[in-house]
């Protein structure tokens, strides 16, 4: 007979907390799996009373939101933790931050609300530093991109090449200048399937205007959340704003 786990089922979930954390500096090279592994070990070191799944190989109940790609820094990654015991979110955030390596930093920690986290997030705000790219060149490329309705890009996935449109997801795109030789692509992108990532946006700029940075770009996610009427995104850990403020259409820069 196949064995079944003995003993009582795992303790129930009594609370859920949401954590906003940053992925900074050299730790931007962590993949999502690296982040998840490091997080799980930090939760154990910090003695956070996680709730576990049932079965023969129980796992701590952690729900991740779409992660910033390997190589991209972020000020706004989100995760929801299911707890088997009550903890003050603020205190939990502090012990977790102390247990995480420098560069994975807890920014905020709040009790979960009734609305699922995933429903509070539909867009990301990216700030992509482009060393070696003149702002004038980027500005021209952005203009060319926004002039189109559709820009197909190709990405190599493990299932082969995949072609999709990178234009429709772009809500807002602005060229900023750090100096004459370093442009910044400031953009808000709606979360679509597949997700349009920073490298897809750069591919799109290359398709429309031949923009090819000679130095690796430095993408940074500044925020993610619900897209608001003014083109900004609302932090999902902040109290819900009125739904009327949510953006229905699309605005172009």
């Amino acid at each position: 007979m196949p064995r079944r786990p003995e003993g009582p089922p795992p303790p129930p979930v009594v609370a859920r907390v949401r954590v906003r954390f940053a992925k900074r500096g050299r730790l931007r090279f962590l993949s999502h799996r690296d982040v998840a592994r490091t997080f799980e070990r930090a939760l154990r070191r910090a003695d956070v009373p996680m709730a576990y799944s049932a079965g023969f190989s129980p796992h701590p109940r952690i729900s991740w939101l779409g992660a910033a790609p390997t190589g991209a820094a972020s000020e706004a990654e989100y995760v929801e933790l299911a707890l088997a015991d009550h903890r003050q979110p603020r205190a939990l955030g502090e012990v977790l931050d102390a247990a995480l390596p420098a560069g994975l930093d807890v920014v905020a920690c709040a009790p979960a609300t009734a609305t699922p986290l995933a429903e509070l997030v539909d867009a990301s705000h990216w700030w992509i530093r482009l060393p070696g790219v003149a702002p004038t060149a980027l500005a021209a490329a952005v203009e060319a991109l926004l002039a189109r309705d559709l820009v197909e890009v190709e990405r190599v996935t493990k299932d082969g090449h995949r072609r999709f449109d990178a234009r429709q997801a772009v809500v807002l795109m602005v060229c900023r200048a750090e100096n004459d030789t370093c442009a910044i692509l400031d953009t808000v992108v709606r979360h679509t399937t597949p997700a349009v990532r920073p490298d897809d946006m750069l591919t799109a700029l290359c398709v429309v205007a031949g923009l090819r940075p000679s130095v690796p770009p430095e993408p940074l996610r500044l925020g993610q959340g619900r897209l608001l009427a003014d083109g900004t995104v609302a932090d999902p850990l902040m109290p819900d704003r009125d739904d009327a403020e949510r953006l229905v259409g699309r605005i172009d820069a």
């Binding site: 050299r26 730790l27 090279f29 962590l30 993949s31 690296d34 390997t70 190589g71 390596p101 420098a102 560069g103 690796p216």
Partner: peptide
């Protein structure tokens, strides 16, 4: 590092 496989190999920390 953005140009190599598994840059996390070289980070230390």
């Amino acid at each position: 590092l953005p140009r190599v496989r598994k840059p996390v190999r070289y980070l230390g920390g």
